[in-house]
């Protein structure tokens, strides 16, 4: 049977090939953390991590993900405590309505790995490179209509600089 692993647990893939990963999470698994904002890959509210890479769950047809391992916001934290980025979001007041937050956090967690792997960004070609502009560029796939961007960047920076989050 074709299966997919979500947050460490294996599930059979849906029968209907039209099912997106996002709809599979919502309608089959009752995992509502990844949000449906635009459903067209424009807002990033549905961002999940597929085999260590962040992607828009709304544009992924689940049948193409056989054998893949997906982490959603529900699987970001450990059993015992929040992920450091989740704590930083609380500390920095990095959300207002919260609708984009699960996507922002999945995206931010992935971005930390990309930075560790030294993946380039378009800002690396700019004459006036700055870490702040680099972070903004890397997070540009996640819209926040409340406009909490400044605090989201602060939260990301706290974790990047490994400051203690309490």
């Amino acid at each position: 049977m074709a299966t997919i692993t979500i947050n460490g647990q294996e599930y059979p893939l849906p029968d209907d090939p039209r099912t997106t990963l996002l709809d599979f999470l919502h309608q089959h698994l009752k995992l509502f953390g990844a949000k449906k904002g635009c459903d067209h890959g424009q807002c990033g509210a549905c961002t999940v991590v597929v085999d260590n890479e962040r992607m828009n769950a709304c544009l992924l047809l689940a049948f193409q993900l056989e054998g893949k391992s997906v982490t959603t916001i529900e699987g970001i934290a450990s059993e015992e405590e929040l992920h450091p980025l989740q704590k930083a979001f609380v500390k920095c007041d990095a959300f207002q309505c919260g609708f984009c937050t699960s996507g922002q956090i999945c995206s931010g967690v992935s971005m930390m790995n990309e930075l560790q792997e030294n993946n380039p960004s378009t800002v690396w070609f700019e004459p006036n490179y700055s870490e702040q502009e680099d972070i903004k560029e890397r997070m540009s796939g996640n819209l926040c209509r409340c406009g909490a961007y400044a605090n989201i960047i602060d939260a990301v920076n706290i974790v990047r600089q490994d400051k203690e989050v309490s």
Binding site: V50, R54, N56, P120, W124, F125, S140, G141
Partner: peptide
Amino acid sequence: LLSGATVQLRNR
């Protein structure tokens, strides 16, 4: 490539 889309889209 890096000027186009977002990381989420470029990964896919």
